[in-house]
């Protein structure tokens, strides 16, 4: 890491270009190492089970989409659908609740706003340990175990705080004058929110929605515990692909590739906004 700073600052010399090239080469090597497990997963998903289980590993072998056909044939589809319902549904509700709350917190700071912020942020960090036992027992008594809507509702609780935090930081960036001008023009508070502020924070809202979606899509603990067959989502399903008797590596890789694809693609597209959201608005 020193050399990286050094090359940028070094006075021009003959060796400078070579050093810079070496640092670039080293950087790409590190990138390759970090990305390798993902690349290997995708590569293995195209192999036959036999080829996936050979050692030393085969780098040249017959590739096909057969494992994807197998895994979908073994009924992965419904799990993906359940994941979609839980994540999209909870994301929509989270945004419906978070946008007004964040607006209330930022554009029109209520008294003790900082208290309120602290409350919301701390609920995000409350361990699931705090609530899981009563939640399980209540759902069991109400016959709501293995119910995808119940799972989605719990995801709302998990993701609401982080969405409020992100949205608050986006609302806070709207210049006061814009809001005041709208009010002088006679717009009510509500109309001002919908007509003026909301359009200005829509890129931020998209980022908040994306992060909410990612957390819900990837959630394992609650999904594993509270669903069994009907409402099972993708993360707990993946473990069931592991087969104690037969070969399963290629099938596992195919299932995992399908499972991570939506979030990885969305994350790649929106990476700039993602950073800011994940740092909860602390970083521009």
């Amino acid at each position: 890491m020193t050399s990286a700073t050094a090359t940028r600052q070094a006075p021009s010399r003959l060796g400078r270009k070579t050093t810079s090239g070496l640092v670039t080469l080293f950087t790409w090597f590190v990138v390759f190492v970090f990305f390798f497990p993902v690349a290997w997963m995708v590569f293995t998903s195209f192999k036959t089970e036999g080829a996936a289980a050979t050692f030393p590993p085969q780098f040249v072998t017959d590739l096909s989409l057969d494992r994807y056909r197998d895994i979908l044939g073994r009924g992965m589809g419904p799990y993906l659908i359940n994941s979609t319902i839980a994540s999209v549904g909870s994301t929509l509700i989270v945004m419906l609740l978070a946008i007004p709350a964040a607006y209330g917190l930022s554009v029109r700071p209520i008294t003790r706003w900082s208290d309120m912020l602290f409350f919301f942020i701390s609920t995000r960090f409350m361990p699931v340990a705090a609530s899981i036992i009563p939640v399980y027992i209540v759902l069991q008594k109400a016959g709501l175990l293995d119910n995808i809507n119940a799972l989605a509702f719990l995801y709302v609780g998990i993701n609401l705080p982080i969405a409020i935090w992100m949205m608050r930081s986006f609302f806070a960036e709207i210049p006061r004058e814009v809001v005041e001008a709208a009010q002088i023009d006679g717009a009510g508070y509500f109309r001002e929110l919908v007509r003026v502020s909301l359009p200005m924070v829509s890129p931020g809202a998209a980022a908040a929605a994306l992060i909410t979606f990612i957390f819900a899509w990837n959630e394992y603990f609650l999904a594993n515990l509270l669903t069994s067959t009907l409402a099972r989502t993708t993360p707990p399903f993946l473990g069931s692909v592991v087969d104690g008797r037969g070969q399963f590596l290629a099938a596992l890789c195919a299932a995992s590739t399908l499972a991570v694809l939506p979030v990885v693609l969305a994350g790649w597209v929106a990476q700039k906004r993602l950073v800011r959201g994940l740092a909860m608005g602390a970083i521009k």
């Binding site: 990138v31 970090f34 990305f35 497990p37 993902v38 290997w40 997963m41 293995t44 990612i214 899509w217 990837n218 394992y220 993708t234 993360p235 707990p236 993946l238 473990g239 692909v241 592991v242 399963f248 590596l249 596992l252 890789c253 995992s256 499972a259 991570v260 979030v263 990885v264 994350g267 790649w268 990476q271 993602l274």
Partner: peptide, 20 residues
């Protein structure tokens, strides 16, 4: 490429690391 590991579903990451 570098941000990808963070986006990978933790359950998938655990299984892929363990088995492959």
């Amino acid at each position: 490429l570098l941000i990808t590991p963070f986006l990978v579903m933790p359950a998938a990451a655990a299984l892929i690391w363990k088995w492959t």
